[in-house]
Design a protein around this nucleic acid. Sequence first.
DNA 1: AGCCAATGCGTTATGAAATAACATAACCTG
DNA 2: CAGGTTATGTTATTTCATAACGCATTGGCT
Lengths: 161, 161
Amino acid sequence: MGVDCHHTESAQPGLEGAALASAVAAAQSKCERTRERLTPPRRRVLELLLEADGPMKAYDLIAAYGQDGEPAKPPTVYRALEFLERLGFAHRIESLNAYVPCRMEGTSHRAAFLICECCGTAEEFEPDFSPQFAAAEAAGYAVRTVTLEARGLCPACKVEA
Amino acid sequence: MGVDCHHTESAQPGLEGAALASAVAAAQSKCERTRERLTPPRRRVLELLLEADGPMKAYDLIAAYGQDGEPAKPPTVYRALEFLERLGFAHRIESLNAYVPCRMEGTSHRAAFLICECCGTAEEFEPDFSPQFAAAEAAGYAVRTVTLEARGLCPACKVEA
DNA sequence: AGCCAATGCGTTATGAAATAACATAACCTG
DNA sequence: CAGGTTATGTTATTTCATAACGCATTGGCT
Ligand SMILES: [Zn+2]
Ligand SMILES: [Zn+2]
Ligand SMILES: [Zn+2]
Ligand SMILES: [Zn+2]
């Protein structure tokens, strides 16, 4: 990300082979349990996210969509992303206009990210908002979703800087 | 925002008259203290943000820029927004692609928002991240900025729903 | 004053991100 | 297999943001 970053960019290497197949199969069975359909475009976009080494832009997904090099049409990918987000298989990172596969084991969670401004990796973590929003809820707010994105330097890039 | 919201949309009424002039003057003198220049386009965009009842989109600012109805050119407004953000006079709300004037008194702070999905207001509050990021910093991260945006219903809209 | 570097602005054009709208196809379920 | 629902294909458009370049203004320096 930073022009002066020469890291291998694989702080979060993408899945391949058996690991990839296994992750997709897990999503598949999760869908079946809730009568949701992991259709070909949805599966394909999930694969692309899982294979990637970091956050993927929507138009990167569009370009990479066809195994033969044929790009997808934008709505194909945006619809798949909407589905994957709804099911919790992927998250959108607002401050990057980019998407990542969910890295957390648990089923339901509020996603939060530590984003490295040097190498571009985005590490998901489980935030604890209880103290924050006790006050908000006490003031009458009904909080539904929360976006928390911290930006800075990951350990590796911090050392080099 | 919500199609079923019939509120007056003035949960955060914009400034006018003396209050507006005073807010702009405060920004002016803050700039002078740090040798920054509140030039005409920057002042104009700040005015528009302060006058607004809620978050403003960049192209709303562009359209409203000229007192005679003439729109600004996009770079004019985006440059002004960059400046206002840098000085802490305005914040970008990532999940809305929109901008608000800073409502906090203190000089330096990490902005956070409670966004009502019904009436569209965005209330700024001062978050306390200390517990969250003690862990992150301990793990070697150097956190520089944080985006925290909570979405839900404000007290007024919650009652109506 | 005259010069210079730095900063900001005006303008044109383009790039990037996301969605609208509508037709067709696949899938349940009774 | 009929009919409602969900998903996809396709075309076009809208929305959001920046690149690039030349000119103007500012403020320090000699
Ligand atoms: Zn997750
Ligand atoms: Zn890094
Ligand atoms: Zn603020
Ligand atoms: Zn509201």
